[in-house]
């Protein structure tokens, strides 16, 4: 992937991270890969380290893009509804951004349901 495309994805990841944080019922966004895995990828691919604010993973492979987000939600909100809202919001934001024109999947995983 070119450095320019890499920067565009990082920018999109930062935007999506902020958008997800603003969805009602979301209490946190996590890196979808561990720091160790991320560091290994960086070393392997000779990439620059991703910004700490870019927690949403954007993976391009063979003409297909997978957008992956891991979140925490509040037990005060119905978890299934929150994760659906996040998925729909991410998809809408990606489509509106126009930087991804290939087929894509949006994966959202709830990792923690918190008392907040």
């Amino acid at each position: 992937m070119s450095e320019r495309a890499e920067r565009a994805d990082e920018h999109l990841s930062i935007q999506l991270t902020e958008i997800i944080r603003s969805v009602p019922g979301v209490t946190g966004v996590f890196r979808s890969t561990s720091l160790v895995e991320a560091a290994a990828d960086v070393v392997a691919a000779g990439l620059s380290l991703r910004s700490p604010g870019a927690l949403v993973d954007i993976d391009r492979a063979e003409g297909f893009v997978t957008v992956r987000a891991h979140i925490a939600t509040s037990v005060q909100d119905t978890t299934a509804d929150v994760v659906r809202r996040v998925g729909e919001t991410v998809k809408a934001a990606v489509e509106a951004g126009g930087t991804i024109r290939t087929p894509m999947a949006v994966n959202v995983a709830v990792r923690v349901i918190e008392d907040r």
């Binding site: 037990v75 978890t79 299934a80 994760v83 659906r84 998925g87 729909e88 998809k91 894509m104 999947a105 949006v106 994966n107 959202v108 995983a109 709830v110 990792r111 923690v112 349901i113 008392d115």
Partner: peptide, 23 residues
């Protein structure tokens, strides 16, 4: 978690559900 849009793959981790049950 089901969604009519096939682009979306939504899940809860088993640990999140175990935590919910504990709560």
């Amino acid at each position: 978690i089901s969604h009519p849009d096939p682009v979306l793959r939504l899940t809860l981790s088993e640990s999140a559900v175990r935590g919910l049950i504990r709560r």
